[in-house]
């Protein structure tokens, strides 16, 4: 299957089940909303917490959405067909990751500045938060997909997936939240944003190969 064909199929499937796009977004907003309730509504305190809170919530939302990335294909047997086909899995997997990011990552990117504003993040940091989440979420999807591929055939899925993937999310969290704190202090941010961009490119070129290997291991061939 070619890149565009897989992409079209994924987008069409998602169009028929819009809940799978909307649910991670709701989750993202709700988790962020819990922090002022749990900590304190004081603006200056929320502003210091904001970068980390938004990033942790985004990270969990991506993690939960990525869990089902291959499950439907695995249960319907479409995955088995793809694995026995003679051509490489790299391109279809790449298309699947790109489609998944457009469906679940992009809504988070759009919502992040609004949440940043509600947490009283300084104005100069809100734009940086937007760019950081834009550059960081593809990496989260790509890394999460490796874990999803390794756990696709297991019943215990979800919680195991988070044990495997959360430690791998640490660099994205550190740089992603760090760069927003930088911006809030009025420090230069372009270097760290470039680093986030480099991580995105590297993970999106390397992860499809690892995902393909993981899917082969999970299917036992």
């Amino acid at each position: 299957m070619s890149f565009t064909a897989t992409m079209q199929r994924e987008l069409l499937l998602a169009w028929r089940r819009p809940a799978e796009i909307i649910n991670p977004l709701f989750f993202f907003v709700m988790v962020v909303a819990l922090f002022p309730l749990g900590v304190s509504p004081r603006p200056e305190l929320l502003a210091t917490l904001a970068p980390g809170v938004v990033w942790v919530a985004a990270l969990l939302a991506v993690l939960l959405s990525v869990d089902g990335l291959f499950r439907a294909d695995h249960d319907s047997g479409a995955l088995e067909q793809l694995l026995t086909a003679p051509q490489s899995l790299y391109v279809p997997v790449l298309a699947k990751l790109a489609a998944h990011w457009m469906l679940t990552g992009l809504p988070l990117v759009v919502m992040a500045p609004l949440l940043g504003y509600m947490l009283h993040l300084p104005e100069q940091a809100i734009g940086v938060l937007f760019i950081a989440v834009l550059l960081g979420t593809p990496t989260l999807v790509a890394i999460g997909a490796i874990g999803a591929a390794l756990t696709v055939s297991l019943r215990s899925g979800g919680i195991l997936l988070s044990l495997l993937v959360l430690p791998l999310y640490v660099p994205v969290l550190v740089f992603g939240a760090g760069v927003v704190s930088y911006a809030a202090k009025g420090l230069p941010v372009s270097g760290v944003l470039a680093l986030l961009g480099a991580m995105m490119l590297a993970s999106f070129t390397l992860a499809p190969a690892a995902v393909a290997a993981g899917l082969r291991i999970s299917s036992g061939n």
Binding site: L164, P167, P171, F175, A210, G214
Partner: peptide
Amino acid sequence: LLSVVGVINVVIVKYS
């Protein structure tokens, strides 16, 4: 496979 991905990650974690 997980530890191959993890080793790449360890290097980045250290710098981050």
